[in-house]
Design a protein around this nucleic acid. Sequence first.
DNA 1: ACTTGTTCTTGAACACGTTCAAATTTGGGG
DNA 2: CCCCAAATTTGAACGTGTTCAAGAACAAGT
Lengths: 218, 218
Amino acid sequence: MAAKSEQTRQKLAEVALRMFREIGFEKTTMRAIAAEAGVSAGNAYYYFESKDSLVHELYVQVQAEHAERAAGALATTGGLAERLKAVLHAGLDVMAPYHRFGADFVATAIRPTSPVNPFSTASNPAREASLEIFRQAVDGARPAVPKKLRSDLPELLWLCYMGVTLFWVYDTSDGQQRTRRLVDGAAPLIARGLGLARVPGVGKVLDDVLNLSRSVRS
Amino acid sequence: MAAKSEQTRQKLAEVALRMFREIGFEKTTMRAIAAEAGVSAGNAYYYFESKDSLVHELYVQVQAEHAERAAGALATTGGLAERLKAVLHAGLDVMAPYHRFGADFVATAIRPTSPVNPFSTASNPAREASLEIFRQAVDGARPAVPKKLRSDLPELLWLCYMGVTLFWVYDTSDGQQRTRRLVDGAAPLIARGLGLARVPGVGKVLDDVLNLSRSVRS
DNA sequence: ACTTGTTCTTGAACACGTTCAAATTTGGGG
DNA sequence: CCCCAAATTTGAACGTGTTCAAGAACAAGT
Protein backbone atom coordinates (compact mmCIF):
# COMPACT_ATOMS: atom_id res chain seq x y z
CA MET A 1 0.00 0.00 0.00
CA ALA A 2 1.10 3.52 -0.77
CA ALA A 3 -0.25 4.44 2.65
CA LYS A 4 3.07 3.79 4.35
CA SER A 5 4.41 7.15 3.29
CA GLU A 6 1.20 8.94 4.16
CA GLN A 7 1.35 7.29 7.56
CA THR A 8 4.78 8.76 8.27
CA ARG A 9 3.55 12.16 7.20
CA GLN A 10 0.57 11.99 9.50
CA LYS A 11 2.64 10.70 12.37
CA LEU A 12 4.93 13.71 11.99
CA ALA A 13 2.04 16.15 11.88
CA GLU A 14 0.34 14.54 14.85
CA VAL A 15 3.49 14.53 16.95
CA ALA A 16 4.29 18.12 15.98
CA LEU A 17 0.83 19.42 16.88
CA ARG A 18 0.84 17.61 20.18
CA MET A 19 4.25 19.01 21.06
CA PHE A 20 3.21 22.51 20.02
CA ARG A 21 0.31 22.24 22.44
CA GLU A 22 2.22 20.66 25.28
CA ILE A 23 5.62 22.30 25.30
CA GLY A 24 5.28 25.30 22.94
CA PHE A 25 6.81 26.29 19.65
CA GLU A 26 10.45 26.87 20.50
CA LYS A 27 10.95 23.79 22.62
CA THR A 28 9.42 21.70 19.86
CA THR A 29 12.54 21.22 17.77
CA MET A 30 12.54 19.51 14.43
CA ARG A 31 14.94 16.95 15.85
CA ALA A 32 12.57 16.24 18.73
CA ILE A 33 9.59 15.87 16.43
CA ALA A 34 11.51 13.49 14.20
CA ALA A 35 12.81 11.47 17.12
CA GLU A 36 9.34 11.17 18.66
CA ALA A 37 7.99 10.10 15.28
CA GLY A 38 10.80 7.57 14.90
CA VAL A 39 12.52 9.05 11.85
CA SER A 40 15.61 11.13 11.22
CA ALA A 41 15.53 14.91 11.36
CA GLY A 42 16.37 15.22 7.69
CA ASN A 43 13.50 12.95 6.81
CA ALA A 44 10.97 15.33 8.31
CA TYR A 45 11.98 17.74 5.57
CA TYR A 46 10.97 15.24 2.94
CA TYR A 47 7.39 15.68 4.12
CA PHE A 48 7.35 19.26 5.36
CA GLU A 49 9.49 21.86 3.73
CA SER A 50 9.93 23.82 6.92
CA LYS A 51 8.90 24.06 10.55
CA ASP A 52 6.45 26.72 9.43
CA SER A 53 4.76 24.17 7.21
CA LEU A 54 3.92 22.20 10.30
CA VAL A 55 2.36 25.31 11.73
CA HIS A 56 0.37 25.61 8.53
CA GLU A 57 -0.86 22.08 9.10
CA LEU A 58 -2.12 23.19 12.48
CA TYR A 59 -3.78 26.25 10.97
CA VAL A 60 -5.64 24.14 8.44
CA GLN A 61 -6.84 21.68 11.05
CA VAL A 62 -8.00 24.42 13.37
CA GLN A 63 -9.92 26.16 10.58
CA ALA A 64 -11.57 22.91 9.58
CA GLU A 65 -12.73 22.20 13.10
CA HIS A 66 -13.90 25.77 13.49
CA ALA A 67 -16.04 25.47 10.36
CA GLU A 68 -17.56 22.26 11.62
CA ARG A 69 -18.42 23.53 15.07
CA ALA A 70 -19.67 26.87 13.80
CA ALA A 71 -22.03 25.19 11.36
CA GLY A 72 -23.53 23.23 14.20
CA ALA A 73 -23.98 26.29 16.37
CA LEU A 74 -25.47 28.34 13.53
CA ALA A 75 -28.22 25.81 12.95
CA THR A 76 -30.07 26.81 16.10
CA THR A 77 -29.86 30.60 16.30
CA GLY A 78 -31.41 33.36 14.22
CA GLY A 79 -30.37 36.80 15.46
CA LEU A 80 -27.16 38.24 14.05
CA ALA A 81 -25.73 38.99 17.48
CA GLU A 82 -26.29 35.42 18.62
CA ARG A 83 -24.91 33.99 15.40
CA LEU A 84 -21.82 36.13 15.65
CA LYS A 85 -21.28 35.12 19.24
CA ALA A 86 -21.67 31.47 18.33
CA VAL A 87 -19.12 31.69 15.53
CA LEU A 88 -16.55 33.61 17.54
CA HIS A 89 -16.88 31.43 20.62
CA ALA A 90 -16.55 28.34 18.47
CA GLY A 91 -13.29 29.74 17.14
CA LEU A 92 -12.00 30.41 20.63
CA ASP A 93 -13.00 26.91 21.73
CA VAL A 94 -11.00 25.34 18.96
CA MET A 95 -7.93 27.47 19.55
CA ALA A 96 -8.02 27.13 23.34
CA PRO A 97 -5.57 24.21 23.68
CA TYR A 98 -3.02 26.17 21.68
CA HIS A 99 -3.12 29.38 23.68
CA ARG A 100 0.42 29.10 25.00
CA PHE A 101 1.51 28.62 21.42
CA GLY A 102 -0.58 31.54 20.17
CA ALA A 103 2.06 34.23 20.25
CA ASP A 104 4.52 32.21 18.22
CA PHE A 105 1.77 31.20 15.87
CA VAL A 106 0.80 34.80 15.19
CA ALA A 107 4.43 35.84 14.84
CA THR A 108 4.84 33.16 12.21
CA ALA A 109 1.54 33.82 10.50
CA ILE A 110 2.03 37.54 10.17
CA ARG A 111 5.00 37.21 7.81
CA PRO A 112 3.82 37.75 4.25
CA THR A 113 6.29 35.10 3.09
CA SER A 114 5.03 32.43 5.46
CA PRO A 115 2.76 29.63 4.27
CA VAL A 116 0.75 30.25 7.43
CA ASN A 117 -0.04 33.84 6.50
CA PRO A 118 -3.84 34.01 6.20
CA PHE A 119 -3.51 36.06 3.03
CA SER A 120 -1.01 33.74 1.34
CA THR A 121 -2.08 31.52 -1.52
CA ALA A 122 -1.24 28.46 0.56
CA SER A 123 -3.88 29.57 3.03
CA ASN A 124 -6.49 30.32 0.40
CA PRO A 125 -8.63 27.23 1.04
CA ALA A 126 -8.50 27.69 4.80
CA ARG A 127 -9.33 31.38 4.56
CA GLU A 128 -12.12 30.69 2.09
CA ALA A 129 -13.61 28.16 4.49
CA SER A 130 -13.38 30.63 7.30
CA LEU A 131 -14.98 33.38 5.21
CA GLU A 132 -17.77 31.01 4.32
CA ILE A 133 -18.65 30.67 7.99
CA PHE A 134 -19.19 34.39 8.25
CA ARG A 135 -21.17 34.45 5.02
CA GLN A 136 -23.52 31.88 6.50
CA ALA A 137 -23.75 33.78 9.75
CA VAL A 138 -24.78 36.92 7.84
CA ASP A 139 -27.00 35.37 5.20
CA GLY A 140 -29.03 33.30 7.61
CA ALA A 141 -29.59 36.09 10.10
CA ARG A 142 -33.21 37.06 10.92
CA PRO A 143 -34.03 39.91 10.90
CA ALA A 144 -31.93 40.32 7.77
CA VAL A 145 -29.02 42.75 7.72
CA PRO A 146 -29.40 45.89 5.56
CA LYS A 147 -28.98 45.09 1.88
CA LYS A 148 -26.14 47.43 1.17
CA LEU A 149 -24.02 45.76 3.81
CA ARG A 150 -24.71 42.19 2.98
CA SER A 151 -21.88 41.65 0.51
CA ASP A 152 -19.12 43.38 2.45
CA LEU A 153 -20.04 42.36 5.93
CA PRO A 154 -18.66 38.81 5.94
CA GLU A 155 -15.20 39.99 5.04
CA LEU A 156 -15.31 42.76 7.61
CA LEU A 157 -16.46 40.33 10.28
CA TRP A 158 -13.70 37.97 9.32
CA LEU A 159 -11.28 40.82 9.90
CA CYS A 160 -12.87 41.35 13.30
CA TYR A 161 -12.28 37.69 13.95
CA MET A 162 -8.58 38.21 13.19
CA GLY A 163 -8.64 41.09 15.63
CA VAL A 164 -10.31 38.98 18.30
CA THR A 165 -7.68 36.32 17.75
CA LEU A 166 -4.96 38.87 18.26
CA PHE A 167 -6.63 40.05 21.43
CA TRP A 168 -6.92 36.46 22.60
CA VAL A 169 -3.22 35.85 22.09
CA TYR A 170 -2.41 38.68 24.46
CA ASP A 171 -5.13 37.74 26.92
CA THR A 172 -3.51 36.22 29.98
CA SER A 173 -6.67 36.15 32.08
CA ASP A 174 -7.92 32.81 33.40
CA GLY A 175 -9.18 30.76 30.48
CA GLN A 176 -9.00 33.93 28.40
CA GLN A 177 -12.30 35.09 29.91
CA ARG A 178 -11.53 38.68 28.94
CA THR A 179 -11.75 37.67 25.31
CA ARG A 180 -15.00 35.86 26.02
CA ARG A 181 -16.42 38.99 27.55
CA LEU A 182 -15.20 41.04 24.61
CA VAL A 183 -17.06 38.75 22.24
CA ASP A 184 -20.21 38.79 24.35
CA GLY A 185 -20.12 42.56 24.49
CA ALA A 186 -19.08 43.30 20.94
CA ALA A 187 -21.42 40.95 19.07
CA PRO A 188 -24.68 42.65 20.13
CA LEU A 189 -23.08 46.05 19.65
CA ILE A 190 -22.17 45.25 16.08
CA ALA A 191 -25.67 43.98 15.42
CA ARG A 192 -27.22 47.10 16.92
CA GLY A 193 -24.74 49.32 15.11
CA LEU A 194 -25.78 47.87 11.79
CA GLY A 195 -29.34 48.84 12.50
CA LEU A 196 -28.18 52.46 12.50
CA ALA A 197 -27.30 52.11 8.82
CA ARG A 198 -30.84 53.29 8.09
CA VAL A 199 -30.47 56.53 10.04
CA PRO A 200 -29.98 59.19 7.31
CA GLY A 201 -26.79 60.87 8.53
CA VAL A 202 -25.18 57.58 9.43
CA GLY A 203 -26.01 56.04 6.08
CA LYS A 204 -23.96 58.64 4.23
CA VAL A 205 -20.87 58.05 6.34
CA LEU A 206 -21.34 54.32 6.09
CA ASP A 207 -21.46 54.50 2.30
CA ASP A 208 -18.14 56.26 2.34
CA VAL A 209 -16.67 53.71 4.71
CA LEU A 210 -17.75 50.91 2.42
CA ASN A 211 -16.39 52.67 -0.65
CA LEU A 212 -13.08 53.25 1.05
CA SER A 213 -12.87 49.66 2.20
CA ARG A 214 -13.58 48.51 -1.35
CA SER A 215 -11.12 50.84 -3.02
CA VAL A 216 -8.44 49.88 -0.59
CA ARG A 217 -8.88 46.17 -1.15
CA SER A 218 -8.63 46.26 -4.94
CA MET B 1 36.62 59.40 28.63
CA ALA B 2 33.92 56.87 29.35
CA ALA B 3 32.60 57.64 25.88
CA LYS B 4 34.70 54.95 24.26
CA SER B 5 32.31 52.28 25.34
CA GLU B 6 29.30 54.37 24.38
CA GLN B 7 30.90 54.93 21.02
CA THR B 8 31.09 51.21 20.34
CA ARG B 9 27.48 50.82 21.36
CA GLN B 10 26.36 53.54 19.00
CA LYS B 11 28.48 52.20 16.18
CA LEU B 12 26.79 48.83 16.58
CA ALA B 13 23.32 50.37 16.61
CA GLU B 14 24.06 52.56 13.63
CA VAL B 15 25.49 49.70 11.59
CA ALA B 16 22.61 47.44 12.54
CA LEU B 17 19.94 49.95 11.57
CA ARG B 18 21.63 50.68 8.26
CA MET B 19 21.89 46.99 7.45
CA PHE B 20 18.26 46.40 8.44
CA ARG B 21 17.28 49.10 5.96
CA GLU B 22 19.58 48.03 3.18
CA ILE B 23 19.59 44.27 3.22
CA GLY B 24 16.72 43.29 5.51
CA PHE B 25 16.43 41.53 8.84
CA GLU B 26 17.51 38.00 8.07
CA LYS B 27 20.53 38.87 5.98
CA THR B 28 21.68 41.19 8.73
CA THR B 29 23.44 38.61 10.87
CA MET B 30 24.94 39.41 14.23
CA ARG B 31 28.32 38.36 12.86
CA ALA B 32 27.95 40.76 9.95
CA ILE B 33 26.95 43.64 12.19
CA ALA B 34 29.88 42.99 14.47
CA ALA B 35 32.32 42.67 11.57
CA GLU B 36 31.10 45.90 10.01
CA ALA B 37 31.41 47.64 13.35
CA GLY B 38 34.89 46.24 13.81
CA VAL B 39 34.27 44.07 16.84
CA SER B 40 33.75 40.39 17.51
CA ALA B 41 30.34 38.79 17.35
CA GLY B 42 30.38 37.95 21.02
CA ASN B 43 31.14 41.52 21.90
CA ALA B 44 27.92 42.75 20.33
CA TYR B 45 26.16 40.81 23.08
CA TYR B 46 27.96 42.84 25.69
CA TYR B 47 26.00 45.85 24.47
CA PHE B 48 22.77 44.32 23.22
CA GLU B 49 21.33 41.29 24.85
CA SER B 50 19.83 39.98 21.63
CA LYS B 51 19.21 40.75 18.02
CA ASP B 52 15.72 41.80 19.06
CA SER B 53 17.23 44.47 21.28
CA LEU B 54 18.70 46.06 18.19
CA VAL B 55 15.23 46.07 16.69
CA HIS B 56 14.03 47.78 19.85
CA GLU B 57 16.67 50.43 19.28
CA LEU B 58 15.18 51.01 15.86
CA TYR B 59 11.68 51.20 17.30
CA VAL B 60 12.71 53.84 19.80
CA GLN B 61 14.46 55.96 17.20
CA VAL B 62 11.53 55.76 14.81
CA GLN B 63 9.08 56.77 17.53
CA ALA B 64 11.23 59.71 18.53
CA GLU B 65 11.45 60.98 14.99
CA HIS B 66 7.73 60.47 14.52
CA ALA B 67 6.99 62.58 17.59
CA GLU B 68 9.25 65.33 16.34
CA ARG B 69 7.81 65.48 12.84
CA ALA B 70 4.23 65.18 14.02
CA ALA B 71 4.65 68.06 16.42
CA GLY B 72 5.82 70.23 13.55
CA ALA B 73 2.93 69.24 11.32
CA LEU B 74 0.37 69.75 14.09
CA ALA B 75 1.40 73.33 14.63
CA THR B 76 -0.21 74.49 11.42
CA THR B 77 -3.52 72.62 11.17
CA GLY B 78 -6.75 72.84 13.12
CA GLY B 79 -9.35 70.39 11.86
CA LEU B 80 -9.27 66.92 13.36
CA ALA B 81 -9.23 65.25 9.95
CA GLU B 82 -6.22 67.26 8.85
CA ARG B 83 -4.43 66.75 12.12
CA LEU B 84 -5.00 63.02 11.95
CA LYS B 85 -3.73 62.89 8.40
CA ALA B 86 -0.66 64.86 9.36
CA VAL B 87 0.19 62.54 12.22
CA LEU B 88 -0.36 59.36 10.26
CA HIS B 89 1.54 60.52 7.20
CA ALA B 90 4.40 61.64 9.41
CA GLY B 91 4.52 58.11 10.81
CA LEU B 92 4.58 56.60 7.35
CA ASP B 93 7.31 58.98 6.27
CA VAL B 94 9.54 57.95 9.13
CA MET B 95 8.97 54.24 8.58
CA ALA B 96 9.32 54.40 4.80
CA PRO B 97 13.03 53.48 4.57
CA TYR B 98 12.33 50.36 6.59
CA HIS B 99 9.44 49.02 4.55
CA ARG B 100 11.28 45.92 3.34
CA PHE B 101 12.08 45.24 6.95
CA GLY B 102 8.53 45.86 8.11
CA ALA B 103 7.25 42.31 8.07
CA ASP B 104 10.10 41.01 10.18
CA PHE B 105 9.77 43.96 12.47
CA VAL B 106 6.10 43.27 13.08
CA ALA B 107 6.75 39.56 13.50
CA THR B 108 9.28 40.41 16.19
CA ALA B 109 7.20 43.12 17.80
CA ILE B 110 4.08 41.05 18.10
CA ARG B 111 5.60 38.56 20.53
CA PRO B 112 4.49 39.45 24.06
CA THR B 113 7.93 38.42 25.32
CA SER B 114 9.85 40.67 22.96
CA PRO B 115 11.35 43.98 24.13
CA VAL B 116 9.98 45.45 20.91
CA ASN B 117 6.40 44.61 21.76
CA PRO B 118 4.57 47.95 21.96
CA PHE B 119 2.77 46.83 25.11
CA SER B 120 5.91 45.63 26.90
CA THR B 121 7.37 47.61 29.76
CA ALA B 122 10.55 48.17 27.76
CA SER B 123 8.46 50.00 25.18
CA ASN B 124 6.58 52.08 27.72
CA PRO B 125 8.42 55.34 27.07
CA ALA B 126 8.15 54.95 23.31
CA ARG B 127 4.47 54.11 23.49
CA GLU B 128 3.81 56.95 25.87
CA ALA B 129 5.49 59.36 23.47
CA SER B 130 3.43 57.99 20.63
CA LEU B 131 0.21 58.28 22.63
CA GLU B 132 1.10 61.84 23.49
CA ILE B 133 1.11 62.71 19.78
CA PHE B 134 -2.47 61.56 19.46
CA ARG B 135 -3.47 63.37 22.62
CA GLN B 136 -2.18 66.57 21.12
CA ALA B 137 -3.89 65.89 17.85
CA VAL B 138 -7.20 65.46 19.66
CA ASP B 139 -6.87 68.21 22.26
CA GLY B 140 -5.83 70.88 19.81
CA ALA B 141 -8.52 70.12 17.25
CA ARG B 142 -10.97 72.91 16.32
CA PRO B 143 -13.88 72.40 16.29
CA ALA B 144 -13.41 70.39 19.46
CA VAL B 145 -14.32 66.72 19.57
CA PRO B 146 -17.36 65.71 21.66
CA LYS B 147 -16.55 65.76 25.36
CA LYS B 148 -17.45 62.19 26.10
CA LEU B 149 -14.93 60.99 23.54
CA ARG B 150 -12.02 63.19 24.42
CA SER B 151 -10.40 60.93 26.99
CA ASP B 152 -10.68 57.66 25.11
CA LEU B 153 -10.06 58.87 21.61
CA PRO B 154 -6.26 59.18 21.71
CA GLU B 155 -5.84 55.56 22.70
CA LEU B 156 -8.31 54.41 20.07
CA LEU B 157 -6.57 56.45 17.41
CA TRP B 158 -3.25 55.02 18.48
CA LEU B 159 -4.76 51.59 17.94
CA CYS B 160 -5.84 52.72 14.47
CA TYR B 161 -2.26 53.78 13.89
CA MET B 162 -1.13 50.25 14.75
CA GLY B 163 -3.68 49.00 12.26
CA VAL B 164 -2.44 51.36 9.58
CA THR B 165 1.09 50.18 10.25
CA LEU B 166 -0.01 46.61 9.79
CA PHE B 167 -1.72 47.52 6.54
CA TRP B 168 1.42 49.34 5.42
CA VAL B 169 3.56 46.30 6.05
CA TYR B 170 1.45 44.28 3.67
CA ASP B 171 1.15 47.08 1.14
CA THR B 172 3.32 46.22 -1.85
CA SER B 173 2.05 49.07 -4.03
CA ASP B 174 4.56 51.62 -5.33
CA GLY B 175 5.76 53.73 -2.43
CA GLN B 176 2.91 52.20 -0.39
CA GLN B 177 0.51 54.64 -2.00
CA ARG B 178 -2.42 52.39 -1.07
CA THR B 179 -1.70 53.09 2.57
CA ARG B 180 -1.48 56.80 1.79
CA ARG B 181 -4.88 56.66 0.16
CA LEU B 182 -6.25 54.73 3.11
CA VAL B 183 -5.09 57.45 5.46
CA ASP B 184 -6.44 60.22 3.24
CA GLY B 185 -9.79 58.47 3.06
CA ALA B 186 -10.08 57.28 6.63
CA ALA B 187 -9.05 60.45 8.46
CA PRO B 188 -11.97 62.63 7.28
CA LEU B 189 -14.33 59.71 7.75
CA ILE B 190 -13.33 59.31 11.35
CA ALA B 191 -13.73 63.03 11.93
CA ARG B 192 -17.15 63.01 10.34
CA GLY B 193 -18.13 59.86 12.18
CA LEU B 194 -17.37 61.48 15.50
CA GLY B 195 -19.79 64.26 14.67
CA LEU B 196 -22.51 61.62 14.65
CA ALA B 197 -21.94 61.05 18.36
CA ARG B 198 -24.57 63.70 18.96
CA VAL B 199 -27.27 61.89 17.00
CA PRO B 200 -29.50 60.35 19.71
CA GLY B 201 -29.61 56.74 18.49
CA VAL B 202 -25.91 56.71 17.73
CA GLY B 203 -24.96 58.16 21.07
CA LYS B 204 -26.48 55.23 22.92
CA VAL B 205 -24.53 52.70 20.91
CA LEU B 206 -21.39 54.75 21.21
CA ASP B 207 -21.72 54.83 24.99
CA ASP B 208 -21.84 51.08 25.02
CA VAL B 209 -18.83 50.85 22.74
CA LEU B 210 -16.85 53.09 25.06
CA ASN B 211 -17.95 51.15 28.11
CA LEU B 212 -16.95 47.89 26.48
CA SER B 213 -13.60 49.25 25.42
CA ARG B 214 -12.97 50.46 28.97
CA SER B 215 -14.04 47.26 30.68
CA VAL B 216 -11.92 45.21 28.33
CA ARG B 217 -8.79 47.26 28.94
CA SER B 218 -8.87 47.04 32.74
C1' DA C 1 15.60 -13.82 -10.14
C1' DC C 2 17.70 -9.62 -12.02
C1' DT C 3 17.70 -4.84 -13.50
C1' DT C 4 16.17 -0.26 -13.35
C1' DG C 5 13.99 3.86 -11.94
C1' DT C 6 11.52 5.94 -8.18
C1' DT C 7 10.53 6.84 -3.52
C1' DC C 8 12.12 7.21 0.93
C1' DT C 9 15.75 7.71 4.56
C1' DT C 10 19.93 8.86 6.65
C1' DG C 11 23.83 11.34 8.71
C1' DA C 12 26.97 14.79 8.15
C1' DA C 13 27.36 19.44 7.24
C1' DC C 14 26.27 24.67 7.13
C1' DA C 15 25.04 29.31 8.94
C1' DC C 16 22.60 31.26 12.36
C1' DG C 17 21.64 33.38 17.31
C1' DT C 18 23.56 32.97 21.57
C1' DT C 19 26.69 31.77 25.72
C1' DC C 20 30.76 31.78 28.33
C1' DA C 21 35.30 31.13 30.26
C1' DA C 22 39.38 33.14 29.46
C1' DA C 23 42.29 36.91 27.80
C1' DT C 24 43.02 41.72 27.25
C1' DT C 25 42.50 46.56 28.09
C1' DT C 26 41.45 50.35 31.05
C1' DG C 27 41.46 53.51 34.99
C1' DG C 28 42.83 54.75 39.51
C1' DG C 29 45.31 54.32 44.14
C1' DG C 30 49.72 53.34 46.25
C1' DC D 1 55.77 53.17 37.66
C1' DC D 2 53.15 49.21 39.30
C1' DC D 3 49.28 46.69 40.58
C1' DC D 4 44.63 45.39 40.98
C1' DA D 5 39.86 45.31 40.10
C1' DA D 6 36.57 46.39 36.93
C1' DA D 7 35.15 46.92 32.19
C1' DT D 8 35.70 45.25 27.72
C1' DT D 9 36.81 41.87 24.08
C1' DT D 10 37.69 37.57 22.10
C1' DG D 11 37.18 32.94 20.07
C1' DA D 12 35.46 28.62 20.62
C1' DA D 13 31.46 26.19 21.54
C1' DC D 14 26.32 24.82 21.73
C1' DG D 15 21.74 23.92 19.85
C1' DT D 16 18.85 25.44 16.32
C1' DG D 17 16.50 25.16 11.35
C1' DT D 18 17.78 23.57 7.08
C1' DT D 19 20.34 21.32 3.00
C1' DC D 20 22.19 17.68 0.46
C1' DA D 21 24.88 13.88 -1.43
C1' DA D 22 24.69 9.29 -0.74
C1' DG D 23 22.55 5.11 0.35
C1' DA D 24 18.44 1.83 1.34
C1' DA D 25 13.93 0.12 0.34
C1' DC D 26 10.59 -0.56 -2.94
C1' DA D 27 7.84 -1.39 -7.29
C1' DA D 28 7.52 -3.06 -11.82
C1' DG D 29 8.95 -4.99 -16.19
C1' DT D 30 11.36 -8.74 -18.34
